[in-house]
Simulated assay, not measured.
Amino acid sequence: MEIGTPLFEGSKKILLLGSGELGKEMAIEAQRMGLEVITVDRYDLAPAMHVAHRKYVIDMMNPNAVKAVVKRENPDAIIAEIEAINTDALVDLESNGFRVIPNANAVKACMNRIELRRFATEKLALPTTKYAFAENEEEAKHACKDIGFPCLIKPEMSSSGHGHVLVNKIDDVEEAYRESVSHARGKGRRVIVEEFVKIDTELTVLTYRYYSNSGSIITKTIEPIEHKRPSYYYVESWHPSTVSREVKETARGIAQKVVEELGGLGIYGVEIIVSGNRILFSEVAPRPHDTGLVTLASSDINEFQIHVRSAIGLPIPEVKLVSPAASHVILAQTENVWGPKFINVEKAMEIPGVQVRLFGKPVTYEKRRMGIVLATGNSVEEAIEKVRKASSIILVK
Rank of each mutant, 00 (worst) to 15 (best):
V319T: 08
T334R: 15
V322M: 14
I316F: 07
V308F: 11
P340T: 03
V322C: 11
I316N: 10
V329H: 06
N302P: 07
Q305N: 06
K347T: 10
K341I: 07
V322R: 14
S327Q: 07
G353V: 05
L331P: 05
L293V: 14
V308I: 12
K320W: 06
L331D: 00
V294F: 02
L331E: 03
N336F: 02
H307W: 09
V322P: 08
V294M: 09
I301E: 05
M349E: 15
P324Y: 05
S327Y: 08
S327V: 11
D290G: 04
I343A: 06
E346N: 15
P315H: 10
A311C: 09
A332G: 09
A285S: 14
T295D: 07
I351P: 05
W338S: 09
F342Q: 01
R287Y: 06
I306W: 02
P315Q: 11
D300K: 06
I316R: 07
V322G: 08
V294P: 11
P324N: 08
P315G: 10
A311K: 01
N344Y: 15
A348T: 06
G339I: 03
S298R: 07
V337F: 03
I330H: 14
V329W: 01
I330R: 12
S323G: 09
P352R: 01
I343W: 14
E346H: 14
V329Y: 02
V337Q: 03
V345Y: 08
E303Y: 11
K341F: 01
P324V: 04
S310G: 13
R309I: 04
E350Q: 14
N344M: 11
A348M: 14
V322Q: 14
V308P: 01
L296V: 07
I306V: 15
E346W: 08
S299V: 10
S298N: 12
R309Y: 04
I316A: 12
R287Q: 01
G353D: 05
G339M: 04
A285H: 01
S298L: 13
T334I: 04
T295W: 00
A332W: 00
P340E: 02
H307E: 13
A326N: 12
E346V: 11
Q333K: 14
N302F: 01
V322S: 12
A297K: 13
E335I: 00
Q333N: 12
D290E: 11
I301Q: 04
P286Y: 08
L321C: 09
P352A: 11
I312C: 02
R287C: 01
K341N: 14
A285G: 14
A311N: 06
A325P: 15
G339F: 00
G339H: 00
P288W: 00
G313F: 03
P315T: 10
P315C: 11
D290S: 09
P317S: 06
T291W: 03
A332H: 02
P340N: 02
G339C: 01
V322F: 14
D290Y: 04
A297W: 08
V308M: 00
P324K: 01
P324G: 13
